[in-house]
Write a protein that binds this DNA or RNA. Sequence first.
DNA 1: CGGCGCCATTGCGCATTGTCAATGTGTGGA
DNA 2: TCCACACATTGACAATGCGCAATGGCGCCG
Lengths: 245, 245
Amino acid sequence: MRAADPLHALGEDPGPVCRCCEADDHSVCASLTPDGLRGLRVIRGNARIGAQDAVFHEGEAAEAVYSLTSGTVKLSKLLGDGRRQIVGFVFPGDFFGFDAEGTYPYTAEAITPVGVCRFSTGRLAQLRSQTPELERLLFERLVADLALAQEQMLLLGRMTAREKVAHFLLTLSRRAVRRNDPASPVALPMSRQDLADYLGLTIETVSRTITQLKRDGLIGLVRPELVDLLDVAALRRVAEGGGSD
Amino acid sequence: MRAADPLHALGEDPGPVCRCCEADDHSVCASLTPDGLRGLRVIRGNARIGAQDAVFHEGEAAEAVYSLTSGTVKLSKLLGDGRRQIVGFVFPGDFFGFDAEGTYPYTAEAITPVGVCRFSTGRLAQLRSQTPELERLLFERLVADLALAQEQMLLLGRMTAREKVAHFLLTLSRRAVRRNDPASPVALPMSRQDLADYLGLTIETVSRTITQLKRDGLIGLVRPELVDLLDVAALRRVAEGGGSD
DNA sequence: CGGCGCCATTGCGCATTGTCAATGTGTGGA
DNA sequence: TCCACACATTGACAATGCGCAATGGCGCCG
């Protein structure tokens, strides 16, 4: 149960206090006016969740929406025979758990220990109707999520293993920068299995591809879960279908 | 330019009048109160677009959001070397063209002749802020689209060719039923190439797989673009990873 | 009425990726 | 300190799906 916790070493250990609605610039809460913020604070609940534990499961009744305050969460869908697809990684400031049909369309599991804010769907719905500003911000967030999902569809359907991995590393780097983390030693809080399930590959192919990129001098492995982007330009060329690179 | 127009024969020929905001139950407009509806009518523009023509292109400034009134539209993303991924098909009543970054994240092209309603982003934004009901409906729609995209990610990343095709046919059938069309002879308004680009396969693999399903008695081809679902239960088993079926 | 052209289908050889299995590596516990 | 376990890496082989090319079918145009 107690898995390696690479993020601990990287200073993303969840602090003792829920930082919901006090997070960085990219958080929905940070864009709210004091009034809207107050509303959110009133209806929110906090929770700390251990690494590898689930926030909710695919198919369960969707009773709450969550906002991540610290750590990393993975969202995954299962096929009957156990095949798994990770449909997204959640970083601090992101919302997850929205749903149209009354049941969660995916399982949400903590990769590292995480802190979340919990908003019961009912109370959030009420607050949303009273706070157009909040509704609007959530909408923007959702549009961005959809664009991200579509980008991932392009990756899953049309990229080679090498392109997938390069693209993924660059995306992680970009997201790190937006959280004011350094662009280059990129942390991979997720396991190789998670990576494979996100990129539509097997764990072995992921491993081999990373080794290949390392051998070609595009990246360096500080540790298995900490990657140096040595040649970003070349990585970018690979990610865009640059063939030989 | 004048391509085959299978939908014409299927009674989905766009009528002489834009039916926007008069569409079926599943349209956003149909759920609006008379007041909200009036607002939408006021700001909308109409357009008819010929088969194979683009509504807008990936990367263009996003100046408007669209609602489809008749026909079928495909949404696609391109890789530098021409590889293409279709990220969604749009049917009457659906909205498309939302964006977070100021530019469209995909290209929208008419598969058949289509009719659309056009809402300039500016005016729609204003109306949305005045009509919480509308904002809420668009939000629900977006959540559903996101769930659909995630389902497609599972398909693209983890399903075999056979499973992909079976899943696709069943999905089309379900969507047809929701539009009050028959479940079984399912119309495929899109070309084999579009199908391949949607399922992350090549045109040849799609063709071979369809032939295989036909040989196994699960489907029948009335015409290449009209498929009989002969054994829905078996198809369902295949789509869920039923292995041998 | 015949030919041309587009799209779908089929055949065949090949490559990328998956599968199965063994070997390394690093961390925590005895 | 050593062992055990989990995870990552590497290797050998198989298979699914791809690429290229030829054939077939159908509608449009001359």
